[in-house]
Structure formats: structure tokens, C-alpha cells
Amino acid sequence: MTEPTVAPTAESAVARSGRRLPGGVTRNLGLVIALVLICLVGFITAGGRFASVDNMMTILRLAAIVGVVSIGQTFVITAGGIDLSVGSMLGLATVWATTGANQYYANQTTWLLMVAVALVVGVAGGLLNGIMVAYGKIAPFMATLAMMVAAKGLAEWIANRQTQIVKVRGFETFFSANPLGIPMLVWIFAVVAAAGWVVYNRTTFGRRTVAIGGNLEASRLAGIKTNRHLVLLYALCGLTVGIAAVMMMGRTMAGTSTHGTLYEMDSIAAVVVGGTLLTGGRGTIFGTVIGVLIFTTLTNIFTQNNLPTSVQEITKGIIIVGAVLLQLRIAQRAKA
């Protein structure tokens, strides 16, 4: 995941000095307060049922898959891009990993084969996105939109529009485990989030991502191989999609082209609410995790209280608008 160092010293200066708050502490604090308030609402309306350990795990399991995708999305958006293909790529990866042939060989050898296939599909799709964006100079929105449509079609074609059931025993055993009482999905989410945080905040790869999002041309002039970096970024996002696909298979024991439907929107919403600028140049992994948790906790509270999803979608919309308005104000203040 880490980048071989080329010229690490000068470039963090390119990351427009001053606009990158150190760690973004205050804004993350606001997010945490928002999450706490939402939890408080949950506790008041649903009481002990909401606050139970079982329910916390239910929320985290719900958050895990979208969460992993959102980590990858954070990198891409920070660099001024966007990846609309994450949802259908996730579906494609689950389909490809669960074909009859792959399951046959997985049963003959090891279930890790299915994991490998899903990861390869995710990374390959990401690489393709990156090449279209970096070398083809296609706008990220269009390049990944094309990938979204094509991946969906390919997934339907491979699966013959059916749901493929996972019948590999080892796979099932691994993903239904609860090490230390915490579901495997949640562990994976935690590891990916931690790794994402380290790469984002503690490596030159992360710094360059921020720099490119701040000003692509300046970054190139400062010696960053921007094209190659963009390709790697989309591949990284593809990797998280592959991981999420494996998690989805673990959760549903099935592969189908409908897996991941609308996850591009869910992940973008979580990233933006988390405080990453859609225009690029600033982002936060921690914020993204909180953003995902805000949405999933909200969903859980609505379920707990028997409220219709229509109301929930309206609430979601209001939260997104609120977050974007907040971002605009911050951006203006930074300019002034």
C-alpha cells in the first residue's frame, strides 16, 4: 500500500499551507458530538434496547461494509476525484468470486482463493478507473460512471442474473466467528480504518494524495508523478471494494449483481458528512468513520422505533445538506 519514496521532503509544503488543519480536531469534535446526540436520541426513544451490546454490534456490522468502501472513497475524493463504480464493482467482485468454477477450486484448495479473486477483481477495476482518469484524461465522474454501468452488466452476465450461493465451508466458518466477542466483519472494518488512517496521515502516499487534491498542477511541478499516483489511488479504492465484497459474501453467503446497489451514494454521503471536501485537498479518515456511524446509527434508531424508511431518507437528505453547508462556510473562512 505504501509508496516507494521519491522526493518526500518538499511536497508537503505544496499541500496548500494553512488549509489543512492539523488533524482537523475541532471539526471531528463536532462530528463526535453529533454522533453522541444521535445516540442520546436512540437511548431516550428506545432505552436499553438501543444501548445493549447486541445492538451496538448490530450497528457496527451494518456499518462495516459501507465503512470499508468509504475509506477507499475518502482517498479518491481527497485527491479531487470520485468513484461512482464502487457499488457495482462490489457486486461484480462477489459474483466473480462465487462462480461455480471458483467455488470448486476453493473447495479443492482453500477458501482464501475466493478472497483473492474478489480482491483482484476490485484492484483491477480500480486500476482501470485510474488509467482512464490519469492517462485518458476522462473526468472521474464519467470514467467511473462508465465503469459502474459496465461492471453491473458484466456481473449480470457472469451470474446469468442469478444469485450464486457460497458453499465453501471454511469461508463460512471464518466469517461467522466472533473473536473476543466482536464479529469478524467489525474486526475487518477496524483494521481497514486503522490502516487507512496510517496511510493517509503518516505516509508520503497520504501527503501526496492531499497535495494532488489541493492543486494537481502544482503537485506535478513539485515532482509528484501525479498520473501514477492517481492510478494507485483508484486501485487502492478498488482494493477496499474487494475487501468489502469479501465481507458482503461473508455476511450473505451469496454473490449477486445486486450486492452493493447504491453504495456509491452511501459512501460519498458518509465521506462528505465526515468532513472531506468534495473539491479535494482536505479529508479525514476518522471523520469518514464517524460519518458512516452517524448514518447507520440513525438507520438503527428508525428501525428500533418502527418508523418508516421514507422519513429516514428525508432525514438523511437534511443531514447531507447540513454537512455541505457547513463545508462551504469552512471553505470560505479558509479563503478569507
Partner: peptide, 18 residues
């Protein structure tokens, strides 16, 4: 009520179990 996201529907059933 109403979701076409299996991940969410699974979570709803988990809530019922809880």
C-alpha cells in the same frame, strides 16, 4: 419497512433477534 439493500435488511433482522 422497505429496503432493497440486503446488508440493511440483515441488520433489521438482527435487531429483531436482539
Amino acid at each position: 419497512e422497505g429496503t432493497n439493500d440486503v446488508n440493511l435488511q440483515i441488520s433489521q433482522v438482527e435487531t429483531f433477534i436482539n
